[in-house]
Amino acid sequence: MSGHDCDITLTVNGERVTERVDARQTLVDFLRDDLILTGSHVGCEHGVCGACTVRVDGVLVRGCLMLAAQCDGAHVETIEGVSDLGEIADLQAAFEKRNALQCGFCTPGMLLTAQELLARGGVPSRETIREQISGNYCRCTGYQAIVDAIESVAQTRAGAKR
């Protein structure tokens, strides 16, 4: 039941936000309904599909399994913020070129999950890439194009470092 409100102050995509939230409200509902950051999606609502993936203090979390009230003082990054900073511009370009998305509903979470792996550096095997994104369900692509796109970015980034 409702009626237990919490005041939280946090940073979302670099902006300081102070809001009063229902204690039961999930982080993804807070982002979508209160901040109108609708790039994080609600798919399964119990931590399986990965559509609500966001970063909290640099760590990937499921926005449907974390409460907004737990984010007091946290730094939250969503697909909108990560896109605007240009951090994954090469990955987005590879997804576009390889058509690694169809309906796009899983894509924000997929991109953030891929970036977590890519940020470790090196060129992961296709098997490792497939393992990494197995918590992000895509119903459209069959995954191969996504694996191709991530692999190509890993190769390009590794080459650029040499």
């Binding site: 790039g39 896109s83 997804f95 309906c103 796009g104 894509t107």
Partner: peptide, 12 residues
């Protein structure tokens, strides 16, 4: 139409 989908700026 992919950029908006990838940037979280689609409208479902």
């Amino acid at each position: 139409n992919l950029a908006r989908l990838m940037q979280g700026r689609a409208q479902y």
